[in-house]
Design a protein around this nucleic acid. Structure first.
Lengths: 236, 236
DNA sequence: CGAGCGATTGAAAAGACTCAACCACCGTGG
DNA sequence: CCACGGTGGTTGAGTCTTTTCAATCGCTCG
């Protein structure tokens, strides 16, 4: 058995308020809820693959997902890390195009799949929701412009500092972590976020650890000195 | 006098069909046309600046525009080059946010400014247009994921080859160029597209010229061997 | 227990950047 | 008309970051 079905009610969903579906009226919500199917994915399962066509959208109930693109040499570039409450796959669906990227679970994750027709119907009926979607896309576009710029201009060290701060947010969000969020990724994934070789990444992590900016236990990374990292990241 | 006003009718506009406004019904088009103001910008004039707030959108009637973001060290990263028919500035406006990037003319350009209220009204009324806008944003998101990946993974040489091919398209589009498009950019701008130092860019251009892949006359670059460049760019 | 993956370290090589100087072209003002 | 200043283009040399390759280690899983 590759995956397990579960029942989740949108109305009772713990991540509802933090998701893009948060603002839906009860009518729209019911429509989204009606035909969706929720599945528990195991760690490192591919949810969708670059080049295939979307049949609907996924809403993350729990777990983290990496969105990545495979480069010419087979190396993955991670574009973003999604967490509970995030919705994925709607862009390619709306543009009636193939997925430009792939999605894979980083840990066990529960995803709700909403069929294309239901999603589109709600989008057509609920102009507030349309607005929400458009805003979300705009924000993503802006943050990708940021990433592009730092990838082009900043040395690896600065990018790593920035990535650690970003990941602290992502990993601190859900758990009952009292500010002690632990980043849990393979060194390779981390390198593919920062855009560098795994070895380089390991060496820099080592430096940061020596400087007491972070702590590591196995693969887990705990960010200690946000302020100093912000300075290193050259964020203005 | 910094800029000159001119009159252009959307209904007669030469770039109408190639723009996102192409599919508008005559009613919507009239609404877009009504309150717009068209201005001739000189070369190297800033149209809007990162961090300011949009009051409407711009439609490019003629000329090329660079969209860029200024990095921490004051170096610009060019995100895209827009040409006649393209619309710019709607994302920040729709997300009710500041511009995440700046826009500057690369040559004399005629831009039509459409006030926010008119644009939003058409967007609300015309669901086809909403669809068009969403698609355009999705496509941009996909192509930015591409850029991100090649910036992170490909050496400068490959990125330059890719950029030249892309620019050939951009510069070949309008003119009555019979396949002999000439790229006309400063070396610095070109370096800021590729994401490298100006000197590095110049050296690589020199190599390409030696290999008869391109021709240069002053700052102008003519792409000769598309196929070979595609291979160098490692496009799959 | 052996295979294999992920993490780590070392050493060498390569790619790209910086700095500095110089050139070429162009518009301006004397 | 020509010297001048400035911008953009080019070249060289040295340096440094980052990558690559190779090898080792630790741990988990079957």
């Amino acid at each position: 058995m590759r995956s397990r079905r579960v029942d989740i009610e949108c109305g009772l969903c713990s991540v509802r308020d933090s998701s893009l579906f948060g603002g839906l009226c009860s009518e729209s919500r019911e429509e989204i809820n009606r035909n969706k199917s929720c599945t528990v994915y195991k760690k490192n399962q591919v949810v969708f693959h670059e080049g295939t066509r979307p049949l609907g959208v996924f809403c993350i109930n729990s777990g983290k997902i990496k969105i990545y693109k495979t480069g010419a040499e087979g190396k993955d570039q991670i574009i973003q890390i999604l967490k509970a409450g995030d919705i994925m796959g709607y862009r390619a669906m709306l543009s009636e195009d193939q997925y430009p990227v792939s999605a894979e679970t980083l840990e066990e994750a529960t995803l709700c799949f909403i069929p294309k027709s239901d999603f589109l119907h709600v989008l057509r009926e609920d102009s507030n929701f349309t607005q929400t979607i458009i805003k979300s896309m705009s924000r993503d576009l802006g943050s990708m412009a940021d990433s592009l710029t730092s990838l082009a201009q900043k040395p690896v060290r600065e990018r790593l500092a920035g990535a650690l701060l970003m990941l602290k947010e992502t990993y601190g969000a859900d758990d009952q972590s009292n500010g002690t969020a632990e980043i849990n990724l393979t060194r390779e994934d981390l390198a593919n976020i920062v855009g560098t070789a795994t070895e380089t990444l390991i060496r820099l992590l080592h430096d940061f650890k020596e400087d007491k900016l972070i702590e590591t236990q196995g693969r887990k990374i705990k960010v200690l000195e946000d302020q100093k990292l912000i300075r290193i990241a050259n964020l203005y």
